[in-house]
Write a protein that binds this DNA or RNA. Structure first.
Lengths: 201, 201
DNA sequence: CCATTTTTGGACTGATTAATCCAAACAAGG
DNA sequence: CCTTGTTTGGATTAATCAGTCCAAAAATGG
């Protein structure tokens, strides 16, 4: 290897770019915001990551991987599948009340989803994967005897992921614990079968 | 009245601005996009609506009113409260599958919610009102004997509105009928009390 | 016809943007 | 020390943006 070696870590810089895009979105993020957060020069950014849009897509893909990994690790942890589901809800609750970043994929959907096909494809695949992980977790809980029959694990998984997306959107404005808890407790009751209502007659 | 009379309808122009902001968001909408959609000159826009941000807030407030009005009209229609709830779900389903505009309040939350206090306040109040309308509708259905006891009408209302927000975010990427139906059918089952799962043991 | 007001659009300002170019500093290996 | 490659930041470009100013045209009432 000849020449001056790279002094910054590509992954670290990408991670810092991710945080800026996650918080501020695509359009509102200026190159200067990125270089200062990433602590690299402007030219290094273009040399290393292409342009702003490429960097955004790479950050979004990284976010997607992170989100899928943590979800899978949580839901597929050893032990009680139902306890894992509860732990997942708890994590989600913490995130919604302690931060206003929301979910980068939800933010991206609403901001650029309709015009950025590459971003849309990343998000669509990620949401499908998250639904799959959730469905499998529900089925494991059922197979372990912690839940009785589920009418449609897939449909229930979709409701859960959709609700998570709704919470994420809302948390951009700031959410109280009470607001999140209402949603989570109701969903938990649905999953565990405590009926919220019963058809009369 | 002396002088040339106004030739455009302020409400119509505002409605057209609303549609642009709804579809494209705040930052991505240029003044030129607005004037051409509103079919008025640039100076008329500034004279009539102040500046871009004021116009956005007014459009957002108009959207909020529209959304609350249609929701209330639907949920408070004469006849069966439960049928009204089902009609509400049906409308929501149509919107999610036939358009990619989503919900302007959800779009606004994720884009400017964290930095635009005026917009945030409009949205927070609107969501609280929608939750209230939904809670009241659930209570009417219960009181009419169409649903049995509800553990927490408020919590259930929050789950429903949150899911609607999640669907709205997701619909920006385009949604299939199947995806929406899974969520709506599960929610309907929750409301009507058809158990999705029961605690084992 | 004149006064009044509105509409329209071009010219303009000032700021900001993404992106490129370039030169100087810098750091390693041969 | 010299070659190679990297980092940095200033200069620059070309585009875009919101917003203001202004003048001409248009439409009404007196």
């Amino acid at each position: 290897m000849r020449g001056r070696p790279k002094t910054f870590d590509r992954d670290e810089a990408l991670e810092r770019a991710l945080e800026v895009f996650w918080q501020k979105g695509y359009a509102a993020t200026a190159i200067g915001d990125l270089t200062s957060a990433m602590r690299i020069g402007r030219q290094s950014l273009y040399d290393t990551f292409g342009d702003k849009h490429e960097l955004y897509l790479e950050a979004l893909a990284r976010y997607k991987e992170m989100r899928i990994r943590t979800t899978r690790d949580m839901l597929e942890a050893p032990g009680s599948p139902l306890a894992n589901l509860r732990a997942f809800f708890a994590m989600w609750r913490e995130e919604a009340t302690e931060a206003t970043s929301g979910c980068m994929m939800v933010n991206s959907s609403t901001e650029v989803g309709a015009v950025d096909d590459a971003a849309a494809r990343i998000i669509e695949k990620a949401l499908a994967r998250l639904e799959e992980l959730m469905r499998e977790a529900l089925e494991r809980a059922r197979d372990a005897g912690e839940l009785s029959e589920l009418a449609s694990p897939r449909a229930l998984a979709r409701l859960i992921v959709t609700s998570a997306n709704g919470i994420a959107a809302r948390s951009r404005l700031g959410m109280t614990v009470e607001e999140v808890d209402d949603v989570i407790e109701t969903l938990t009751a649905v999953v565990t079968g405590a009926s919220q209502a019963a058809v009369a007659r």
